[in-house]
Design a binder for these strands. Structure first.
Length: 335
DNA sequence: CTGATTTGACCCAA
DNA sequence: TTGGGTCAAATCAG
């Protein structure tokens, strides 16, 4: 993917001003949203007054923020396309069937297996923000995007498919009456540690142009991975609510599962920030900064310097949710 | 060369 | 019989 500095270099002064203006507007709206959410958490009765004072509801602010990001990205990506073509792709491209097999310069094989062009992914601030909004706008009863499908399986709806675990894609199917295919992933530790966790990812129908993904997790991770785990968002029907927290591998009790599992394939590479397929440089940087922030308890400005365009203060955000967390001893945190 | 992804084939439960 | 889940050959990317 192209870097932000590369984009910046290719922007005209006029466009730079426009981009900055849009980002500043977005920041302003995000700050207003933060005030609303803060008031809602502390004193719900105060929220209406605040909304009246700001002359915008939460939903309107979210729309404005997303609009700001979309316009900014449109300006940036249009520059990028013309200056360094084919280095970016949309996040959902991962899940879309490859259609350029016929353009391959190599002779076509007898069947089409393996005929594809690997795509680069771009996870934008919009993706990060959508994810954050999806969590923020869900109430404490879990009346949001998440629901429990069955025992040992749970579903998450998010703007991103990343969860910090290492996954390997093993299949993709078109689903009846669904516009988008469903992708199948297994844990990368399946063979070396016998981890049976799998997940299915399907992009939701997007009448409003949004890009949300329904991820169904089947089975829990029994693998041991000492690397950092990015925040995971889990809910179930027994105890509802929201959860976002950086999770470190901590449970060595499960390592006794490994010796009985024959090692068929070696996939032991440590993956600090999830899979190579669904985690980008931007995500890695974000979680790295996030973790540094948590470890060293620096002031909010540390995060703000990096993600000031959203005005999100991760520490405040997390602490609001930590208050209602319970940990069941597994890698997931459940309410 | 190694590991990851794509995708048609295959399997199986409903 | 059909739709969804998995396998594995072919191919890509570093």
């Amino acid at each position: 993917m192209g870097t932000l500095s590369a984009w910046s270099e290719n922007l005209s002064t006029k466009k730079k001003k426009k981009v900055i203006k849009q980002l500043v507007e977005g920041q302003d709206y995000a700050n207003q949203l933060q005030i609303l959410l803060h008031n809602n958490n502390n004193n719900p009765s105060q929220q209406q007054q605040t909304e009246h004072h700001l002359s915008s509801s939460k939903e309107q602010l979210v729309d404005k923020i997303l609009s700001s990001f979309n316009q900014t990205l449109a300006a940036l990506t249009s520059v990028n396309v013309s200056s360094s073509h084919n280095q970016t792709g949309s996040n959902d491209d991962q899940l879309v069937k490859s259609e350029d097999c016929s353009e391959s310069r190599r002779p076509r094989p007898k069947d089409k297996r393996g005929c594809y062009k690997r795509k680069y992914t771009l996870v934008s601030f919009v993706d990060v923000f959508k994810c954050w909004v999806a969590i923020s706008c869900m109430d404490c009863n879990g009346n949001g995007a998440y629901c429990r499908r069955a025992e040992q399986a749970w579903t998450v709806v998010s703007a991103t498919t990343q969860d910090g675990h290492g996954w390997r894609k093993y299949g993709q199917k078109g689903i009846l009456n669904s516009k988008h295919p469903r992708s199948y992933f297994r844990c990368t530790r399946k063979y070396d540690q016998g981890c049976r966790a799998t997940k299915q990812v399907q992009r939701l129908e997007d009448d409003d142009g949004s890009q949300m993904y329904r991820t169904t997790y089947i089975g829990t991770h029994t693998c041991t991975n000492r690397s950092f785990k990015a925040p995971r968002i889990i809910s179930n029907s027994e105890s509802r609510g929201t959860c976002i927290a950086p999770i470190e591998q901590h449970d060595d009790r499960r390592s006794n599962l490994a010796p009985t599992t024959p090692v068929v394939k070696g996939e032991t590479k440590e993956e600090m920030f999830g899979t190579s397929s669904d985690v980008t440089d931007l995500d890695s940087a974000m979680w790295k900064d996030f973790m540094e922030f948590e470890y060293y308890s620096e002031p909010d400005v540390m995060i703000s310097n990096v993600y000031s365009c959203t005005g999100i203060k991760f520490r405040n955000f997390e602490m609001d949710f930590v208050n209602v967390f319970e940990f069941d001893g597994s890698d997931e945190c459940v309410l």
